[in-house]
Amino acid sequence: MYHARLWSSRHSRGLEIVYNAVNPSLLSVLRGVSKLFGRRFDKPITALESMAKGFLFDCQMCGDCILSKTGMSCPMNCPKTIRNGPCGGVRANGMCEVNPNMRCVWVDAWNGAAQMKNGGAIKDIQFAVNNQNQGTSSWLRMVRDE
C-alpha cells in the first residue's frame, strides 16, 4: 500500500526500534519451527512475511531484504529496481522520473535513513539482487544462512 509505505519510511526510527526488539525472537521461533518441521511450514511463513511486509512496505518479496539498510523504503519499488539509489532522474519535487505520481523510493530511503540509529548502513554497496530468491522468504534465509 502506497500510503502505508510512505508512513513507514517517515517512521523509520520507530520501525527500527521495533525491528531490533522483535527480530531476535522472530528468528528464534523460526529457527525452532525450521528445526522441528523442516520445510513443511515454509509456505505459510512466506505468506505471512509477504502480507506483513506487503502492507507496511509494498514488499516485492525479492527474497533478499535490505529494508533496515534503506531507511525502511523498499528499493524493489523503484521502477529500475536500483539497489544503490537514487538515479539521476529524480524530479525537482522529489517524485519518480518514471512514475510522476510516486515519490522516489530513494529520496524516502535517504530521509528514512537519516532518522535511524544505524542509518549509515545506506552507504554500504549492495550488489545486484539474486533473482533466484524472488518470491522466497528473507526471514527463512536469515535463519538457514546462519
Binding site: 537514487p86 539521476g88 524530479r91 522529489g94 529520496v107 530521509n111 545506506i122 554497496i125
Partner: peptide, 17 residues
C-alpha cells in the same frame, strides 16, 4: 553523477559510493 536534483544533501554520498 547528478548533483543538481534531489536528494541534494545525499548526492555526495552517491558519488562516494
Amino acid at each position: 553523477i547528478n548533483p543538481f536534483v534531489p536528494p541534494l544533501e545525499n548526492r555526495i554520498d552517491q558519488l562516494a559510493k
